[in-house]
Amino acid sequence: MVQDIFLGNYTSCVAARSTNRAILAGSQDGGIVTQLFAFALEEGIIDGAIVAGPGDEPYRPRPMVATTVAELYAARGTKYNICPNVSFIKEATRSYGLDRVGIVGTPCQMQAIRKGQLYPVGLRDVPDKIALAIGIFCMENFPYQSIVQLVEDHANTKMENVVKMDIGKGKFWVYTERGAVIQLPLKITHKYEQPGCHVCLDYVANLGDVSTGSVGTPDGWSTVFVRSKKGNDVWSKAMAAGCFETKPIEEVKPGLELVTKLATEKITKNRKTLEERASFGVAKGLRNPYI
């Protein structure tokens, strides 16, 4: 077990990608989340997974309880805006009748789930039914309207034209169906971020059973942290079943060094924000949620 103040606790860290071409065809990077849920679903480790499914407008996600692999496929790819997956956590165990729930989410959503397991104020019978929580790396999130602003105003294309968005190499990328690639410097995107993200002290989803993200590995691959006993159990079974192709994280570029650098940057910046909030007004501060 590695314990790192910025990267959290983890039993192993690898570069990985799915061995399933169909998954990779529509995935953001290495198809880790889709592949792991698909495997867990087929093996009966989970009965269904709460994922960011398609919504009413292009790139506007809506939480969805996927109980088939086809439904998982429909939710592939990163949408870069808020999807309240945790809002379905009780619904999944009630209306959908799932006894073993999978859920994917940002670091703050992993925090919500773990707080919910320890202090289930309004989550009757939920705590013991979280079978696999996959966390995704997250520097910050955007409201949907911010994404519209970035795509339609700054990138100057319609939301309907977009086939993929990405944040990487210091830029926000928009790919259109006609093959245009628009890149925006992150300097532009910063002001559109969700304000609540600026007090977040977790970059790599320290509380996921498994957490994953593109940072640290080459294009088409993902960095994977295996953290909990449940995570380790599912991950080893999936590896044994040949679901993933992996490389030691030490052998890929840019590797954990970049992950650590970005995690340190985020957490240091947000700690400063929390300090600034304490003296925000005149002899009056803003609330600090952490006790």
Partner: peptide
């Protein structure tokens, strides 16, 4: 204490907890 204080991250925990389903998320906020 959360939204007005600029702390909400739209995770959805509130909607899941509500026993009367009074909370929905419009564009990511409760």
């Amino acid at each position: 204490e959360v939204i007005d204080q600029g702390l909400c991250i739209g995770c959805g925990a509130c909607a899941a907890a509500c026993p009367v389903r009074a909370i929905t998320h419009e564009y990511g906020k409760p």
